[in-house]
Amino acid sequence: MSAEAHTSLYFVRHAESEFIEGQERKRGLTDQGHRDAEKITNLLHAEDVEVFYSSPYLRAVHTIQMLADVVGKPVFIEEDLRERALSGSHIKHDDFYEAKRQLYLDAAFAFSGGESGNDAQARAVKIIEQLLRKHAGEKVVIGTHGDIMTLIFQYYDPAFGFEFWKSTTMPDIYRLDWNMADRKLLKITRMWE
């Protein structure tokens, strides 16, 4: 298989970020998050990554920015890679995990002011498909979030769902390898321990 026929996407779930009500887009990283971003930089620099995209949320951008700076490349922001909105800010969920589970049980369901799995997945996968076409044969880093990452993976492999989402860490890294000759996802490899 030629190098041009092989494409790798590195999904980097953001590092630790302090929760601040109403600051979904502007939350940066904690001190631990910054230390983990440095570890991510060291780990992925050895992978010879070439291109960087991110959700517009600062915690996702900041998690991969140091690596992009070391490589000397910009981080391109893609609005449609943002995290799925659980619900409108006027709704409070007594059990966050149960609310998430409900969303995974019915991909068409959405809480008031929120986004269904079907809708979030469709917008995000559209970007992933564009990146696969535009960057065939390259290694692309994507700054992301647990829920939208799970929905993207689920599109390519239905085995990914609530239990996978619940098992992911902050940060987390998964490499998806494609054979571009037949547009086939070859494997998904977790790179964060």
Score class of each variant (00 low, 15 high):
K100M: 10
Q102I: 14
Q102D: 15
L105I: 01
A108N: 15
A108T: 14
F109C: 12
F109M: 10
A110R: 07
F111S: 06
S112M: 15
G114V: 06
G114R: 05
G114W: 01
S116P: 06
S116G: 06
D119R: 10
Q121P: 03
Q121S: 10
Q121G: 05
Q121M: 11
A122P: 11
A122L: 14
R123A: 04
A124C: 06
A124T: 06
A124R: 02
K126V: 10
K126F: 05
K126I: 09
I127H: 06
I128R: 07
Q130D: 14
Q130P: 06
Q130V: 15
Q130N: 15
L131D: 03
L131W: 10
L131F: 10
L131E: 02
L132W: 05
R133T: 15
K134R: 13
H135D: 05
A136E: 09
A136F: 13
G137H: 02
G137S: 04
E138F: 09
E138Y: 14
E138C: 13
K139V: 07
V141N: 06
I142N: 08
I142Q: 08
I142Y: 11
G143Y: 00
G143V: 01
H145Q: 04
H145P: 05
H145F: 02
G146P: 03
G146F: 01
G146K: 04
D147H: 14
M149A: 12
M149K: 11
T150G: 01
F153R: 08
F153Y: 05
F153W: 06
Q154W: 01
Q154E: 11
Q154V: 03
Y155I: 09
Y156P: 04
D157P: 04
D157Q: 03
A159K: 15
A159F: 12
A159Q: 15
A159M: 11
A159G: 14
F162S: 00
E163Q: 08
F164S: 06
F164I: 02
W165V: 01
K166L: 11
K166V: 06
S167Y: 00
S167R: 08
S167G: 09
S167V: 01
S167C: 11
D172A: 12
D172P: 11
I173S: 03
